[in-house]
Nucleic acid binder design. Sequence first.
DNA 1: ACGATGATTATGACCAAC
DNA 2: AGTTGGTCATAATCATCG
Length: 760
Amino acid sequence: MTSPRASAEKPSAESVDNAASGSSSARVDSSGLVNEIRCLVASKEEMELDKVAVTSRQYKMQFARVMETLNEPPEEKVIKEERPGLLPVSPSSSEDDEPQMNTPEDPVIHSPPSLRAPVLGSPTSIAAALHNSPLNQGGYGQSPTGCDGENRTSCESPGSAGDATDPEGRRRQKTCRVCGDHATGYNFNVITCESCKAFFRRNALRPKEFKCPYSEDCDINSVSRRFCQKCRLRKCFSVGMKKEWILNEEQLRRRKNSRLNNMANQQRPLQNPHDPSMKNISSPVSVLTSPQMSLHSPPSRHGGLSMGPIVSPPSVTTSAFSLLSPTDSSNSDSPPGQNRCGPLGGIGHHSSTDSYDSALLLQQRLQLAQARQAAVQSMGSPQSMLQLSQAAAAANRGVTVDPLRGRVMMSIDEYQSLMQMAQSSNLSPMGLNGDQGSPDYKPNVFSPPMNMTSPLNGGSNGLAELGAGHIKHEFDERLKNYLDGAINDELNGSPDLAAVFGNGNGKKDDDIHPGDKLSFQLNTAELRALDNVREAFSGMNETLDSGKQRESFMKNNKTPTDIMNIMDITMRRLVKMSKKLPAFNELSNEGKFALLKGGMVEMLTVRGVTRYDASSNSWKTPVVPDQYNVPVSMFDQLNMDCRDEQKHRFMQFVSALHEDLRKNELAISLIMLIVLFSHRDNVNSPNDRILIDKHHRDYSALLFRYLESLYGEDARKFQEILPRALELLHVISDHSITLFMGTVKTEEAEPLPREFFKTD
DNA sequence: ACGATGATTATGACCAAC
DNA sequence: AGTTGGTCATAATCATCG
């Protein structure tokens, strides 16, 4: 079912497509490339300024206007102009304000007042909307929809907004992982806003797919989220929201019954609830299937548990501690006979893995809870961050951490036996008493992926030692999501973190420096910077559901034209990624274009290395199903004058990068940024050149610090191999321009890659 | 063809329940 | 204290009628 409203609010797909793909006749060589990249740097909202056919010239003028607005700092004006939004916006008043827009074709007028007023009131609002990506939205007060009259809770005074010194301020500072709006907390496994939570709940289980009116890669922010349901829903899934956690009919029925039950009980306050004769009368639900047991714990979270007394702490910050002490268990906020006694009613079934998870989970939650508590108490202090990192790292080692701060439900017997099992293993419950666990423990949040051989531990890890290799990959993912969120939240709230790497606002040169007194432990600014990088690259692996590029991907025998179209996907995503980088946004427009132009092929190549699968001698990608890989033999179809040399260089580059590096997404992301910021020679502006140099150094340092945090002294070996690898990369890039020459049907190839590769 | 009206749909915010 | 679904208000479109 398509939303009439959504379609009405959408910018014209046609105009956007025209703008995004550009007019091939209008583009010539580098100027065409600039236009192409400009189209990508600008988002759909920007295209919406005028509903006119976008010719190249017109678009340049639009772009100049948009860029003017982009260059203005949004916060001040947004607050000032959106304060009136606190008042309810009546249709009449809004019409009075915008008579010139009163046309059904105008998408703006069809938007709710929350969008209309700021957009029309000032172009700065557009900038605010564009700045509202999860990355750029530094704090609570920046949301353009925050004071629009609809979102009343967001309309605090400027002084109170984003005040990181009080817990409430920190809570408000959470940003939705889907759209970047103000988040309320964890919903379906991910920190989201109310709106995305509701959207997900309503649509995640829908049998029919939405259709994207654009090109399947819509940018989702607090403004654009309504434009494309499909991309919004996909984003929800890609950030880790779990449809399995939406209550099913049975669970809803129980919940309803429970409510009725409670209401009935409240209406009979004088009746003795312990009177067995009353029980069956007052409760429509049998005690044996009391919904209280499972309401907040969908099966997938706790694996479902069988008969026996259960413990159901409502959250990690409260009941997790009470679980530690049997005497405290009586403090459960649930009435006796509900949470602590009685079965679950047969939802799901538990496996040994689940049980094991639960035991570890309890410990790890305790560690995280303590660390979080400490972090809240002394926000931003190195100690608290260290504690948080240690707990997170320990959890990471265990891998089976359920990322939820939700409830844990298990029988007391089960809990005790599993605690014993866990304690008898090497995973000591460090953090509870300051013990840092096993001797080989190296505190770090960004531990290498599971499949990464660490020089520090000789390829083993805590989990393997525990014989839990069968634990599902899903938990790994959930752990990552949770840690990302938890760390980000804590960091976001820290008053000491004003100097965030790359945002140009108070960044201190000494924020990142090897040889920190904490040894290889990453400091807060480094953690934050890595988080920024991770966020920026978060869209790179999103699945591709339809579109021309996907069709190219799905072909069995891919032609060079298909290869170009496939590259187009990555190119566009790389532009999007760049836009999310505070460091990139510091540059002038020309500087941005120069970097993208200069670094695109190199970044593509680096990306290609990470996707290279030696066993099948092909590239595999997460954006389409596994079987649709791209064989390296595709080189054989390319320009015979240079294809063999290029293939050889590529394979050299593959072997030049250590396997550990290739498998580490974050490290590869950093390398790509180093590559991106290594093209200052193409830039004229002295200011840009200085900034580019600085960011190049910063990202290089950050990569080394990151590797150092993983491998200690051994990180130097990576530092030694990188220069040669990057040199090789330059050669590949320099020789790539004619690689597709004479092999591509120009009219069928996407324009963006055609700008980088001569086709005829 | 046009405007008025009610129905339908999607969204977002708030809230109670647990 | 955090997360869930329910509920309501709002806005936009569609269908119908005069």
